[in-house]
Design a protein around this nucleic acid. Structure first.
Ligand code: FES
Ligand code: FES
Lengths: 145, 145
DNA sequence: GTATATTAAGATAAAATACTCTTTAATATG
DNA sequence: CATATTAAAGAGTATTTTATCTTAATATAC
């Protein structure tokens, strides 16, 4: 599994937020219901995104969370980085320290090429694109089947 | 992190075994020393590989473990599968059930292309190749720097 | 100001993963 | 047969990840 559960929840919630039409705050309860994720846990996850400036939050009635920037300006990588950390994709496939810096491992050539592609994908795909994929109605984002 | 620690230990030990010249059994102690992995833990990991038929083991003096088949006939994927399970690379990037079967998630198109490449690499690279990379002496496999 | 809605924060619990220690079984050697 | 060597198996511990529960803080509406 490339991404942690926590990170996946953050991504799913962000895509869902990006696909909302209005600019109102959305309650975490609404997100957790729609995504079928525990409300309390999702709250924790979204707190991370709020702290890292990807989301804005507002307390009280009509409060909730919303994207802090336009969905076109938030990348998949932004979210992965702020939850799973920067090095998730920089690591050696065999878990050795400092991939590529000193002696690379026997898998380095093959793995770093693949990593480059993954990195590239994460850096270039935005929440807007993901949301519009979703909107094409053949795509799913919740666990409701 | 794509692979579990356990799986990484299994891979490192297997590459090391593949790079041994003689066909004698190698003690797990020797492997754990060379790889700088806890002996007891490595024992557990290699038990999995023995059970799944990738390694042969032998108890008693001059005992140890060795590859059950020629290194050219053991793929990276063989080891990943027997430790981390088959579905590690078949999963949806957003953790949804049945990637691609029913409704794919918004990331499916991009992710499944990358997955295909990872799968391909794992299926085609053999322990022999990894061991010969290692033997070229610019490559590392242990944590000793 | 009081009640209500909502996120934030903290404390705890459960589950999964990683690691260690001890005992048992198999084999070899003398 | 007695002893030493080695992997297998089992039990136990530690750490991390995932999840839940409770309380606090902040904002709105009346
Ligand atoms: S050193 Fe192992 S993948 Fe780079
Ligand atoms: S359904 Fe999500 S990656 Fe395939």
């Amino acid at each position: 599994m490339l991404l942690s559960n926590t990170c996946i929840y953050g991504l799913r919630a962000s895509v869902l937020l990006a696909s909302k039409l209005s600019d109102d705050f959305v309650t975490i309860r609404e997100l957790s219901d729609e995504l079928n994720i525990s409300f309390h846990f999702l709250t924790k996850v979204l707190q991370m995104l709020t702290k890292s400036g990807i989301l804005k939050s507002y307390k009280g009635p009509n409060g909730g969370v919303k994207l802090a920037r336009p969905a076109s300006q938030i990348t998949f990588m932004d979210i992965v980085e702020s939850i799973d950390g920067k090095q998730i994709i920089k690591e050696c496939a065999l878990g050795l320290p400092g991939c590529g810096e000193l002696k690379p491992c026997p898998l380095h050539d093959q793995w770093s090429a693949l990593k480059e592609n993954i990195l590239n994908m994460m850096n270039h795909i935005s929440l807007e694109q993901l949301a519009s994929n979703r909107a094409s109605d053949q795509f799913n984002i919740s666990m409701h089947y």
